[in-house]
Nucleic acid binder design. Structure first.
Lengths: 352, 352
DNA sequence: TTGAAAGCGCTAACAT
DNA sequence: ATGTTAGCGCTTTCAA
């Protein structure tokens, strides 16, 4: 019996389910499943006549190949995964936007999961449901990363370097240079000397690099580093605000505060104003990220612009290369200081 | 031959692939695949002894069931889809966060796709790769919605009502009442009478409802509606800014501007300040959404708080019910006016 | 250029 | 309580 024909039993079966399968298309076009598959995937030979018949059948039946079946047969999932710590962050939208646009171009799907604060738990995304993973910062542990690496599962890191001995490509941003420029600006242009720092979470590389560069820059200007002026801001508005409130209530009043991220800067500003002080007249505040609201802050925020959308796109590009060619290179994207009002400068676009 | 045993050929095959399958687990535990499957899915009976052996085998072999195979066999995808217009919006993070947390609780995966501005194109998510869809606002057309409905494919709408004759559950927010309160506040507390409106995209229901309520509230206060004071803001900072610039350059100077969303409010503020005018002294501005930066705006933004995280969670809950029980109810979540500085009030927390 | 057949890794009757 | 058997809907050799 030819596959292109059908028995009564088959017909009834086909009728009983309203799901259109490749067999229905084959039957409708008068060809075999294999031929339909070839047309679908543009693989192997097919006479233009056949191609057209099959495509018409697909249209007429409104056929869409089922992902699970296709995946099982071809041993690929057709999806890329994204792991982040926290989806509610403001840095997420541009990142997502970049990732999604690139992934759609590549005809893959995007599977997302937030690791929450238990980066130790088992990862919900992996070889069982994706063909590769984008890992943001410390959303998975070194150990888990190592396992992916040993299993030769394609992973690209964002805002993080691979641990020792693990050769995973990464897309990072330049933290040190812009931090140096930013802190130098505070010292040289504004004459601040008591500059505080609000650290990010302990395991965030971005935060560590920013802190190191902050320390180096102070030293380069012969300013001794005062440990009481370094507190945990946790890349969080709430924690940062509390830290600054604590300083102020203890009578510690820096000239300026370098918050590890813009959210922290907002928390700092809130604390300062609540204490009846002014930003930047009494205490200047600068951040990092250039979140969407940085420009609209009160006052507008001097910060460092991070090309997050580009980070997303570059990461996907690299992951695709890794999936297809087995290798990809790392990169570090440039950042740039954005001077606005909160450091004490006159931000041009904002009169009043 | 029992399934629990193995031939040399099978062993070699198992060795040749480094992927651990259910057969490996079965062999390792000395049981059949079915038993492993039962333990895996907690279905049917199994002696506690067997359960333990199987679980140990799973641990030891580091086995994770393959999503495609499981999906094909069980006729489900194990994933829920989310369709939005634009991933780069600020309303996205809380929404995503709510959706993701709920979805992880339900042990599903989250597949995301931005429709871009071609809501007309074919939808990348559907029955072929998900078990149900969350549709945000106008990210798909009425026609596409109708097709899903006719195919009895589970869909839950967010920030949108189903078209006529299509009974799809939705999670919406209260737009009219809070708009009425907001506009009444501008009129009654501040005495504004020339109040402009920046409309959202044409097909956004939120925007239409806000506009209707805006018009009604003006009329209720015996204020005639001036069509020149209604312009397209497109729920976009850039478009809104341009619209306000146009007004000002034409000498049109409202007492207050009601932007359809917070992004638009920011654009309006920018335009006003650039024209050398002050907010709220010369022109007041209010928004809608209560985005993360609304409180930090310059001045802080009077707006309407929208419980986006809850919208996400409620939508997932309803979609799960729809998937499992075939039905779910719609709901409308309450919103609340948040008075800050941009309307002309004294916002308590911000001295200086 | 096309069709037949095998099989991807799992679940789900149905036996027993 | 557990094993056997049949697929799920595709892709992919292999023949023809």
């Amino acid at each position: 019996m030819s596959e292109a024909e059908s028995t009564v039993g088959e017909r009834m079966k086909a009728r009983s389910s309203n799901r259109v399968t490749i067999r229905d298309v084959a039957r409708h076009a008068g060809v075999s499943k294999s031929t339909v598959s070839r047309v679908l995937n543009d693989k192997g030979y097919a006479s233009s006549d056949t191609v057209e018949r099959v495509q018409r059948a697909i249209e007429e039946l409104n056929y869409v190949p089922q992902a699970t079946a296709r995946g099982l047969a071809s041993q690929r999932n057709g999806a890329l995964g994204l792991l982040v710590n926290d989806l509610s962050t403001l840095t997420i939208p541009p990142l997502l936007s970049g990732i999604d646009s690139m992934i759609q171009e590549e005809d893959y799907n995007l599977l997302i999961a937030a690791a929450g604060h238990q980066a130790s738990r088992s990862v919900p995304l992996g070889a069982h449901n994706t063909d590769g993973l984008l890992v943001y910062a410390d959303s998975v542990t070194d150990e888990q990363l190592r396992r992916f690496y040993e299993a030769e599962f394609p992973v690209v890191l964002m805002h993080r370097h691979p641990p020792e001995g693990v050769d995973i490509p990464s897309v990072n941003i330049e933290n040190r240079q812009s931090t140096r420029e930013l802190i130098s600006h505070l010292i040289e242009e504004h004459g601040y000397r008591r500059i505080a720092f609000l650290r990010g979470p302990d395991h965030q590389e971005d935060s560590r690099e920013r802190e190191e560069s902050y320390v180096e820059t102070l030293r380069a200007h012969d300013i001794s580093v005062d440990p009481t002026l370094i507190e945990l801001g946790g890349f969080s508005e709430v924690i940062s605000r509390q830290a600054v409130e604590d300083w102020l209530s203890e009578g510690i009043e820096p000239d300026a505060i370098f918050a590890g991220d813009d959210g922290g800067a907002m928390g700092a500003i809130k604390a300062i104003r609540q204490a009846g002080l002014r930003v930047p007249e009494d205490i200047a505040v600068v951040g990092f990220d250039d979140d969407r609201y940085a420009e609209y802050g009160n006052p507008s925020l001097t910060t460092v612009h991070v090309p997050l959308e580009q980070v997303g796109r570059e990461a996907v590009k690299r992951l695709m290369r890794l999936v297809r060619e087995g290798a990809a290179e790392s990169t570090v994207l440039p950042t740039s200081v954005v001077i606005r009002r909160s450091c004490g400068c006159q931000y041009p676009e904002m009169p009043g």
